[in-house]
Design a protein around this nucleic acid. Sequence first.
DNA 1: GCCAACGTTGGC
DNA 2: GCCAACGTTGGC
Length: 146
Amino acid sequence: MAYWLMKSEPDVFSFDDLVVKTAKGEAEEWHGVRNYAARNNMRAMQVGDEAFFYHSNIGKEIVGIMRIVAPAHPDSTADLNARGEVVWECVDVQSVKPFPRPVTLAEIKATPALETLELVKLSRLSVSKVSAEEWALLLKMGGLEP
DNA sequence: GCCAACGTTGGC
DNA sequence: GCCAACGTTGGC
C-alpha cells in the first residue's frame, strides 16, 4: 500500500465537507488537478491507498486521513485535448479519520526527519508521495496511533 | 499584496 | 528545440 498527500483549499472543499459526504455513503471525485506530475501520482494510486488531507492557504495543516476508493478515471470537469483525448484524470476518495491535533506546515518544516517530504520540497505539487516512515511520523504528530 | 518557484506557451 | 514571457500556486 502506498501513501499520498493531497491539497485542497478549505474554503473550496474542506476535510469536513468530505466527512459529510462519506457519512452519506458518497465518494468525492478529486477533480480539478491540471498538472502532469500530480496526475501521474493519481494514476499510480490503488484502491485502499491512504492519503493525508492538507488544507492549503487557510490553515496550512494536515487535518485528516482519507482513502482512495476508486482508481484514476477521466475528470468530467476537464476539456479534451485537440485530438479529443482525455488528458486529466481523478481518483475518488472518502474520509477515514480526522487528526485529533492538526499538523501545521510550520511544524513539518521544523522537523528534520520531514525535510525530504515532497510537500516541503515540491511546494506547488498538489498531489504528492509520502514514504512509509514519513506517514508513521506524521500520524504520531497528529495524535493517531499507527 | 508580494514574490519565489515552476509549469506552459509561443516565437524564432 | 530553445528560451523569454507569462500565468499559477501557495507561503509569507
